[in-house]
C-alpha cells in the first residue's frame, strides 16, 4: 500500500502548538535554543531473542546498511539512525509515512530472531540545538551532557520533567529527544518555559521520505 493512497492525514504530536518567532530573553540577539518537532519518521523497536543478537545485527545491517551499536550508543547512515534504547533493545528511525512499511520489512527480515514492534507513532521526536541546548536540557536531565562525557552518538534512556525519554546527541550540536507522544504537550510546555531564559525559537520540520 502506498502512502499517497491513504485517506488519512498524519498529524504528529497534534496537541503541541508553537507560536512563531523568538521568545524569552528580550536581550538575546539570537535564540540560545532552537526547538524543532520532527514529523514524518518511522520508528521500529528491535529486541533480539536469546542468542540471536548477532543474527539480528546482520539482518538489520542488510536492511538498513548499519548494524546494532553497543549499549549507550547510536549510529546513523544517511537519514536513518539506529539507537540503543534499553538492554537488548534498539530503535531504528528513518523518514517514512507512518503506515508501517519499515515495520513490515523488518518483521520479515527478523522473523524468529528478534521482537519487532512498530513505534512510529509512540513518540514525539524533538530536536534541541543552539549554544544553550545542554544548559536547557540539564534543567531536567540527570545525565551529564558535557561533550567529554556524552559525546556525539551517545544515547540514554532517562527521565525528564516526569516523562521517560530517550535522549541522543547527534551531529552539529543537536540533541534528539523521543518523548512519549501522549506526554508531548506537557513535555513541550516545560521545555518552552525552561527555554525562556535563553531565548528560543520553536517550530516543526518534516523529514522528506526517500521516495518523495
Amino acid at each position: 500500500m502506498c502512502a499517497d493512497k491513504v485517506e488519512l492525514a498524519r498529524q504528529p504530536s497534534p496537541n503541541v502548538e508553537f507560536v512563531p518567532g523568538q521568545h524569552g530573553d528580550p536581550d538575546a540577539a539570537l535564540p540560545g535554543v532552537l526547538i524543532e518537532i520532527v514529523d514524518g519518521l518511522d520508528i521500529v523497536r528491535v529486541c533480539p531473542f536469546a542468542g540471536k543478537r548477532r543474527a539480528a545485527g546482520a539482518a538489520v545491517r542488510k536492511a538498513c546498511g548499519v548494524g546494532l551499536p553497543p549499549a549507550g550508543k547510536s549510529v546513523s547512515k544517511s537519514a536513518s539512525v539506529i539507537a540503543w534504547v534499553a538492554p537488548e533493545a534498539w530503535c531504528i528511525l528513518t523518514p517514512g509515512p507512518g503506515t508501517g512499511a519499515l515495520y513490515r520489512d523488518l518483521r520479515k527480515a527478523l522473523r524468529a530472531t528478534a521482537a519487532v514492534t512498530d513505534q512510529s507513532h509512540a513518540f514525539c521526536v524533538i530536536r534541541v540545538s543552539g549554544l544553550q541546548a545542554p544548559s536547557l536540557l540539564m534543567k531536567e536531565c540527570a545525565v551529564d551532557l558535557d561533550e567529554t562525557v556524552f559525546a556525539v552518538g551517545t544515547c540514554s534512556a532517562t527521565r525528564m520533567a516526569h516523562v521517560n525519554v530517550h535522549l541522543r546527541r547527534g551531529d552539529n550540536g543537536i540533541f534528539e529527544l523521543l518523548a512519549p507522544v501522549s506526554y508531548a504537550a506537557s513535555f513541550v510546555e516545560w521545555l518552552s518555559e525552561a527555554s525562556l531564559e535563553f531565548g528560543y525559537q520553536a517550530g516543526r520540520r518534516r523529514e522528506p521520505y526517500p521516495d518523495e
Binding site: F49, A89, A115, D118, S120, V181
Partner: peptide
C-alpha cells in the same frame, strides 16, 4: 523465558 515486552499504549 525468551521473550520481549514493550508498551504500545502511546503508539495506538
Amino acid at each position: 523465558l525468551d521473550l520481549h515486552m514493550v508498551s504500545v499504549t502511546d503508539a495506538w
